[in-house]
C-alpha cells in the first residue's frame, strides 16, 4: 500500500490521435492516493478521452500511464479493472435485463475467473451486504425488478452503487450528475465525499456548483492539453481559464 499523498496515477505525455485529430495532445497528470480530482473544460477538450485511455477503452498514440507504479497502458480493459480501476460512463450502462440485485452481484468482481465462478453457487452469502448498499442508494424496494425498469435518476444511482460494490482503488466518473435534480446532485456530492475516504476519484464534470462542493484539486483541460491546475479559488482567478471556459463572470456564473 502506498502512503497517502504518494503519486497514485501518473499520465505522462499522453497523446491520442483519431485519424490525425489530436483528441488528447501531450497530457500530463498526476493524481495522489485518496484525492478527489475534478477535470473540467469546454466540450471537445478531451476529458472523456483522457478517462478512456486510463481504463483501456482507447489506446494511446504516445505517452505512458502508470498506476500504483505499474505501466497499465498496454493492458486489456479487464486487466486494468483487476488492477483496481473502476469506471462510470457518461451514458448510464447497467444490465437492463438483470435485476438490481443481480447487477450488484456482477459488480462484486473480486473473483473474476471463469471456473472459479462456474462453481460458485453460494450467492446468498453476499446478500446482506448488497442490501445495505441498495438501501444507501435508496433502491432497497427495487432489488428484484429489472434494472431496465428504473428511472433515469435511479439508473445513475445504481451505476454508482455498482462501483461501490466493485470497490476499486481508483474510480473514474464521467459526468455523474448529468440529468440530475438539484437535490440528487447534492446527494451525489455527499456520496463522493464518503467514497473519498477509501478510494481515489477522478471526476469529469460540467456542473461548477457540484465541482465547488466536492473538489480538492481541479484540472482544466483545453484542446487536449492541461491548461491549469489548482484549488477552486486558484482556478477561478486564472485568466486563461476565464477566457476559454468560465467566461468573464467567473466561476459563479458558469
Amino acid at each position: 500500500m502506498s502512503k497517502n499523498g504518494q503519486e497514485h496515477l501518473v499520465l505522462t505525455g499522453v497523446v491520442v490521435s483519431f485519424n490525425g485529430f489530436q483528441a488528447v495532445d501531450g497530457l500530463t497528470l498526476k493524481v495522489s492516493k485518496g484525492e478527489l480530482r475534478c477535470i473540467i473544460g469546454p466540450n471537445g477538450a478531451g476529458k472523456t478521452t483522457a478517462l478512456d485511455t486510463i481504463c483501456g477503452k482507447t489506446g494511446l498514440t504516445a505517452g505512458s500511464i502508470t498506476f500504483m507504479g505499474k505501466r497499465i497502458d498496454n493492458l486489456e480493459e479487464h486487466q486494468i479493472a483487476r488492477a483496481g480501476i473502476g469506471r462510470k460512463f457518461q451514458v448510464p450502462s447497467v444490465f437492463r435485463d438483470l435485476t438490481v440485485h443481480e447487477n450488484l452481484e456482477v459488480a462484486r468482481s473480486k473473483r473474476s475467473g471463469v471456473l472459479a465462478n462456474a462453481f460458485c453457487f453460494e450467492r446468498d452469502s453476499e446478500r446482506e451486504e448488497l442490501e445495505k448498499l441498495a438501501e444507501f442508494i435508496g433502491l432497497q424496494e427495487c432489488l428484484e425488478i429489472p434494472a431496465g425498469h428504473l428511472s433515469h435518476g435511479q439508473t445513475q444511482w445504481l451505476e454508482m452503487a455498482l462501483l461501490v460494490a466493485q470497490d476499486p482503488e481508483l474510480i473514474l466518473m464521467d459526468e455523474p450528475t448529468a440529468g440530475m435534480t438539484v437535490q440528487e446532485t447534492h446527494k451525489t456530492a455527499e456520496l463522493f465525499i464518503r467514497l473519498k475516504e477509501k478510494h481515489t476519484l477522478i471526476v469529469v464534470e460540467h456542473d461548477m456548483g457540484f465541482v465547488k462542493e466536492i473538489g480538492d484539486v481541479i484540472s482544466v483541460m483545453h484542446q487536449g492539453k492541461l491548461l491549469a491546475e489548482g484549488t477552486v479559488e486558484q482556478i477561478a482567478e486564472h485568466p486563461e481559464v476565464r477566457s476559454v471556459y468560465l467566461g468573464t463572470g467567473g466561476i459563479g456564473s458558469a
Binding site: 481504463c55 486489456e76 480493459e77 479487464h78 486487466q79 479493472a81 483487476r82 473502476g86 469506471r87 460512463f89 450502462s93 447497467v94 444490465f95 437492463r96 435485463d97 438483470l98 443481480e102 447487477n103 456482477v106 459488480a107 468482481s109 473474476s112 471463469v114 455498482l162 466493485q166
Partner: peptide
C-alpha cells in the same frame, strides 16, 4: 447474462469476456 446485456460494461468489472 450480463455479457448478453452489455458486453463492454462487463469488461470494466475485470471479467475476461
Amino acid at each position: 447474462q450480463a455479457i448478453r446485456d452489455n458486453e463492454n460494461r462487463v469488461r470494466y468489472f475485470g471479467y475476461d469476456v
